[in-house]
Amino acid sequence: MSGTQHGIADCFSPASINGLQLKNRFIKAGTFENMTPSGVPGAALNNFHGTLADGGIAMTTLGYCAVEADGRLNEGMMYMHEGIRPQLTALISDLHSRGTKVSGQMAHCGGFSKNSELRRRRPLGPSFGLNGLGLSRGMLFCDAMTLSDIDELIQHYYQAAVFMKSVGFDALEIHFGHGYGLCQFMSPKTNKRKDNYGGSFENRMRLPLQVLAAVRDAVGEDFPLLAKISMTEGVRGGLHYDDAIEISKLLDSAGIDGIITSGGTSTMNPMIMFRGGNILPGMLRTEKSRVMRLALRMMGKSMFKDYPYHELYFLKQAKRIREAVSCKMIYVGGASSNASFATLMEQGFDFIQLGRTLLSDPDLPNRAQADANFISRCTHCNDCVSTIESPQGIHCTQF
């Protein structure tokens, strides 16, 4: 059997993360599907993830599980609280009955929010600054967290983790990337603090590591914890690939079980993570706010740069992290064929996260296992990104 054939075979072999056995190497990436009206998971979200379960995915991720109400980007997102226990328990139980494990993506928006139900006048980030997402709601700025706010945030992560384990999640994914709350502390671009939470790399990593310790304390040593990072923010003065190696080493030493090597930032340069068709035209087409449409027209070309799609576009940099850590490695970014899946197995990655390709091919694992020459139908047009706030939820517009 050739190396490629071995790699393909490995894709469909079982593997484990901190004792959690997965039936194959495919994991659904965490995304916000806009299928939680008023923040409550229901039939639409059940059907979406149920279809993926029936299609053979080993573990699906419920995206953007905010750790508190003010941690949501908008009021339609879920946050972890007792009021949704019955719905979450039923959803996870159904997915388990279909043979699929379930991960929950723990997230907080920090200073990037358009949530009309904020308890405060402004969202809170590491430093005072602009809140680009809140433009349409008149929320132009974010305020800096006090030390008391930081302590409260850590406690929110702890409490959310206790709750999420109790409703049946099999793993938790802490979102350290994409320009959201913890990433804002990690990045010198957004963290201008002068205290022990800002300045040096060690200080900027203080809160993320405290959050990881709190979540680990909440769930115990034998529960899988994953970290999603941005290997680069793709902006001057932000996090870059060399930083990602040091970030990963710290997370590995602190006991993370797996690292997901993503990239880009939703707040400044989202196209680094998407690649392919530019998302700006679709956003202009679907954005309801006149103010936001004007802002997109004025700043769109600088924020939404063109990055042509090619397979495995993060592989070179992700391999550098693979060589620097001992925890499990989960690749995401431009894997849409059996040839690419095999390459990732051959290069020492343990699991593969899939996002856009599962919108076009929700039965991808089953189809890929049945066809050695499988190539996803996804055209990487990125039109699906513009459906993220569609009434029917995120979906492929091509098939």
Rank of each mutant, 00 (worst) to 15 (best):
R25M: 08
A29W: 11
G30H: 09
T31I: 09
F32C: 06
E33Q: 07
N34D: 06
T36E: 05
P37Q: 06
G39Q: 03
V40Q: 03
P41S: 07
G42I: 06
L45N: 03
N47A: 06
N47R: 07
F48R: 00
F48G: 03
T51P: 05
L52F: 01
G55R: 00
G55C: 03
M59T: 07
T60F: 07
L62C: 03
G63R: 01
Y64N: 10
A66T: 11
E68N: 08
E68C: 10
D70A: 13
N74L: 13
N74Q: 15
E75D: 15
M78K: 07
M80G: 07
M80A: 15
M80N: 10
I84C: 02
I84Q: 02
R85W: 12
P86T: 12
L88N: 08
L88D: 08
T89G: 15
A90V: 06
A90I: 04
A90Y: 09
S93W: 12
S103P: 13
G104Y: 04
M106Q: 12
M106F: 11
M106A: 14
A107E: 03
G110W: 04
F112D: 06
S113L: 07
S116F: 05
L118K: 09
P123T: 02
L124W: 12
G125R: 00
P126T: 00
F128D: 15
F128R: 15
